[in-house]
Amino acid sequence: MKIAVLGGGNGCYAAVADLAEAGHQVRFWRRNYRDFGPVAERGALILRDSKGEREVRPDRITDDIGEAVDGAALIVAPLPAFAQADLAERLAPHLTDDQVIFLPPGTFGSYAMLAALRAKGCNAAIMIAETGTLPWLARKRDAGTVAITTRASRLPTGVVPARRSEEALKVVAEAFPNAIEPVEDGLSGALMNAGPIIHPPLILMNAGPIEHFDRWDIHNEGTQLSIRRVHGALDGERIAIRERLGYAPPHFPLADHYETSNWMYGHLAHDRLVDSGDWHETLDFESHRYMREDIAMGLALLVSLGEWSGTPCPVAAGLLSIASAVTGEDLRANGRTVETLGLADYSPADLKAMLAEGP
């Protein structure tokens, strides 16, 4: 299958490595060709995982987005949610009927990007799918090397327009066999997003150690019983919103990530993450994606959905308020919300009907 992978982050490199190694024709795009560095020089990147280290070659490396997506059945865009508007503007002139864009995860980008594409004059009959997490626990070791700690075995995925879900997910499943689990629509997929549940308590409740120590692993030293309790309460609010909106189980409770093999990454995923050492990272509260994506986009969306649907979410609202104090910004007013998406006047039934047909 012809696949375009867009972006230069950890998930993008993991996507190129796995999909090219699986035999797909992968085109790798970044905005600036120089940013490819050694990947462009070699025409390949280095993949490290449990099988060892080897070189993987995409079909094409380019900074021409039209070239990247031309003829691609699947466009994989593991970019942060705050980059989706810019990506939509770049993609708008180049998309054609029946292409599938896959956002892992999307933070309701399945709707936001499609609305942005329509606003830019793109009328192609495309489908946008989003899931609850990256298909990989991965980190770039350097400019040319990606390390994959583990791969997702369950990816709950929703589509906008939902009426084309079966068609879209057949394409996505060809790239991620035996992992895709259909959910009702793009909002259901967005409400599976694990980032706004895992990361806000980990960074806000560990703010002192993060700023004080040279090295502080929020997934190891920073994951203590009190924080796990906050995780549980916050995740309970997410699930309550899903239930209020009529979305069916399984809801993929976060506790399964820590306690069972039933979650998205399967057996011992948290232990593997900690053991890898790849999550000892510098965390700047102003710019890090845990703040800019998981809180300003994802947690703001969760709080607004709770208010809009009449579902109390005091833990989510409290964490969002603390994050606003940390950044000096009103993240509830300025983040991704039902208001900023133009959806505040919809009823739940009207919203689901629109998501079925697309904006």
Results as ranks from 00 to 15, higher is better:
2 K>A: 03
3 I>H: 03
35 D>W: 01
38 P>G: 12
41 E>P: 00
47 L>R: 12
48 R>L: 11
54 R>I: 08
56 V>E: 01
61 I>Y: 13
73 A>P: 05
74 L>W: 10
84 Q>A: 11
88 A>S: 11
90 R>M: 13
91 L>F: 10
96 T>K: 14
109 G>R: 01
112 A>N: 01
113 M>H: 11
115 A>E: 10
120 K>M: 05
125 A>I: 01
135 P>I: 05
135 P>C: 11
147 A>F: 13
149 T>V: 15
156 P>G: 08
162 A>R: 09
173 A>R: 05
174 E>S: 09
180 I>K: 03
183 V>Y: 14
184 E>D: 08
194 A>H: 06
194 A>N: 11
209 P>L: 12
215 R>D: 06
218 I>W: 02
227 I>L: 05
227 I>P: 01
232 G>T: 07
233 A>W: 02
242 R>P: 02
258 Y>N: 00
260 T>K: 07
262 N>C: 07
276 S>I: 09
277 G>H: 07
279 W>E: 08
281 E>L: 10
288 H>F: 07
288 H>S: 05
291 M>C: 02
293 E>T: 04
294 D>H: 06
299 L>E: 01
306 G>V: 04
314 P>S: 06
318 G>L: 05
319 L>K: 06
321 S>P: 00
328 G>C: 07
331 L>E: 05
346 Y>E: 13
348 P>Q: 05
